[in-house]
Design a protein around this nucleic acid. Structure first.
Length: 267
DNA sequence: ATGGTAGCGCTGCTA
């Protein structure tokens, strides 16, 4: 079974690239973030043509998360189980069950700066995600929590830690919040399958030729429950998808993160 | 020289 997470930075702007990538890479489940479209505008037909059922949670302006699955899509829940009315329109999490595996597509708030209220909100959102696991998930089940966490777990997950003094994405509180989620009983699939750093990075700034300079970060993660971590076969980042292709539309600033599990996609 | 690029959408916000 192949599971992918990809922050596409606008699904409508990226649809052709996403379609081509799905056809070439054949994931069974693809979790998307930053679709930036409303539920009404979601291109359901484009995914159906490729054999994917989809579920989307978006408000049309910012954020937006989706799940595409070709092995079944049941028990869809947009938002948290007990959604705070103040955050219900943020559209940062959607969950569904695909052939017995519960999957969550998450887009963790950016945090902006260490002094901002958005940073406080980011930490609170991560705490809420941990609560969601406690309330809704069983440690013995097959569970995938994947998406853009906007956190580099270790210093080797950024190109130069000296550039990040006083910055978000690497602060101890953010890293501790991610550790608290992992401590529920989840494994970081990319790090598990790739014990050596740096990276592999999954995001590079559009600005300043960051991609070609290697100035990236590992902030998109696929977290697996024990049952799935036991059958982890491989995990990689598809850097090719981050490259520009001449006159075509720009790539997303994130690359797809691909995880392969040694189980039949229908089991 | 606190810069730079992309998306949304039309003004400035978000990342």
């Amino acid at each position: 079974m192949r599971v992918v997470t990809w922050n596409v930075n606008s699904l409508r702007a990226r649809l052709e690239r996403v379609q081509e990538w799905l056809a070439a890479n054949q994931p069974d489940i693809c979790l998307l973030q930053e679709t930036k479209c409303s539920d009404d505008a979601f291109p359901t037909g484009a995914f159906a043509e490729l054999g994917y059922a989809t579920a989307h949670h978006g408000n049309g302006r910012w954020n937006g998360v989706a799940i595409a699955s070709r092995i079944g899509l049941d028990d869809v829940r947009p938002g948290f189980l007990h959604e705070d009315p103040s955050t219900i329109e943020e559209c940062r999490i959607i969950a569904a069950t695909c052939a017995g595996t519960r999957v969550m597509s998450v887009y963790v708030p950016n945090g902006r700066s260490l002094e901002s209220e958005q940073y406080v909100a980011k930490l609170a959102w991560l705490e809420r995600l941990r609560t969601e696991l406690d309330e809704c998930c069983n440690r013995n089940d097959s569970l995938v929590v994947a998406g853009d966490f906007n956190i580099a777990p270790e210093d080797r997950d950024v190109w130069d830690i000296a550039e990040f003094i006083g910055a978000t994405h690497v602060s101890q509180k953010e890293r501790d919040a991610l550790k608290n989620i992992l401590a529920w009983g989840l494994t970081d699939a990319v790090r598990e399958a790739n014990p050596e750093g740096p990276g592999p990075f999954s995001w590079w700034d559009y600005r300043g030729g960051a991609f070609h300079r290697g100035w990236g970060m590992r902030i998109d993660h696929v977290l697996l429950s024990r049952r799935l971590a036991e059958v982890l076969e491989a995990a990689h980042v598809d850097r090719e998808a981050r490259k520009g292709q001449g006159t075509e539309r720009q790539p997303s600033d994130h690359a797809p993160v691909v995880v392969d599990l040694k189980i039949s996609s229908t089991s």
